[in-house]
């Protein structure tokens, strides 16, 4: 029996035990980012309800660039299974990108994607003009921090809010309670903790007398005075991005998110091999299906083991800011 089939069986047992308390909760959606149509297909097969894809010209930190034909392709695959495709258009846009924006949005609407993820109001303006029927998910990353801002963008046509990863669980629940639109949070993977427009890696390599940073390879920063914390750093079309040193893993707390009606769970695939991401998606799929019946059900420890089994040793898993107190 393969590892993941074993996990599956144990979860079923756990769920059966909890059958007594049967009150169905809303089953939240499971979204994962994908780097190619082939990856998307596998991630959907592993249990994702939707994939987020994009073109690095317009989207921040996508795990692979999707051309328009690739988008059409992935839409066909997903829709064939009753699943969804969201296109990230969440970069901070400068005039250069904006010249082609109307046309890009028109093509997205034509290819029948299910929603566009936006942060810059310029995207809203373009969509109102050229794709009024297309859904809009609002995400300004670090600055999506409260329910009133969510409702502001809801008034402007957003149909979903993607919240900042720096919020506490209590704050996430507070937003959900007052939000007029569905709410998405990240439950797994790395997060971006710094975004500069400047090519900071290339600039540094120049200082060392080396050439440009040509390939968009993953590099790692180590803070000089703290041992052991590795922050991945990426340089691309949109500048330089520093990523968290830990991976969020909210597996053990999915129940409370479900209980509080959080609508969508996001898994960040960036920086991980497909096999890892498929395993993670499949584990969350099983956990969600189990917990949607009873959010207070004890989670099968085998699920967490299944994550730990594939987790790279240099990347600790943690709960991000969900349970962390911050001062200012």
């Amino acid at each position: 029996m393969s590892g993941s089939a074993l996990v599956h069986k144990m979860v079923l047992l756990a769920c059966l035990k909890e059958r007594m308390v049967l009150m169905n909760f809303h089953i939240p959606e499971l979204v994962v980012s994908a780097g190619s149509p082939e990856e998307a297909e596998k991630l959907l097969a592993a249990g994702a309800d939707a994939v987020t894809v994009g073109d690095g010209r317009y989207a921040l930190r996508v795990p692979g660039n999707f051309s328009m034909p690739m988008i059409t392709d992935v839409v066909r695959i997903a829709h064939g299974q009753g699943k969804k495709v969201y296109v990230a258009l969440n970069a901070l846009l400068h005039q250069e990108e904006l010249n082609g924006l109307d046309e890009y949005v028109r093509q997205l609407a034509q290819s029948k994607v299910d929603a566009v993820v936006f942060g810059d109001p310029a995207v809203l303006v373009a969509m109102q003009k050229t794709a009024p029927g297309l859904k809009r998910h609002w995400s300004t990353e670090t600055t999506s921090t409260n329910w009133r801002t969510v409702n502001f963008w809801a008034r402007k046509g957003a149909s979903r809010a993607i919240l900042a990863r720096e919020l506490s669980l209590e704050e996430v629940i507070g937003v959900k309670q007052q939000s007029r639109i569905p709410v998405q949070v990240q439950v797994h993977g790395m997060t971006c903790i710094f975004h500069s427009k400047r090519p900071l890696v290339s600039n540094y390599l120049h200082i060392l007398g080396k050439g440009d940073n040509k390939q968009e390879q993953l590099m790692v920063l180590k803070e000089n005075t703290r041992s052991g914390q590795h922050y991945p750093i990426i340089e691309d079309h949109n500048g330089t991005h520093v990523m968290s040193h830990e991976d969020i893993c909210m597996l053990e707390h999915l129940g409370v998110l479900i209980e509080n009606g959080i609508d969508s769970f996001y898994i960040e695939a960036l920086g991980k091999p497909l096999s890892y991401n498929c395993q993670v998606v499949s584990v969350y799929r099983q956990a969600i299906d189990c917990l949607a019946k009873n959010p207070q059900a004890a989670l099968d420890p085998a699920l967490l083991d299944a994550i730990n089994a594939v987790q790279p040793t240099e990347r600790p898993i943690g709960t991000g800011f969900y349970f962390r107190e911050q001062v200012y």
Binding site: E166, N224, Y328
Partner: peptide
């Protein structure tokens, strides 16, 4: 769009807690 200080010092940069972590020294690999 920077929460370095949130991560490295537990201080919320977007509410005035920035610790200028960008100016610290790092090793690149």
């Amino acid at each position: 769009r920077c929460v370095l200080s949130n991560h490295m010092t537990n201080r919320d940069a977007n509410r005035g807690g920035c610790a200028q972590s960008c100016r610290w020294k790092y090793d690149l690999f």
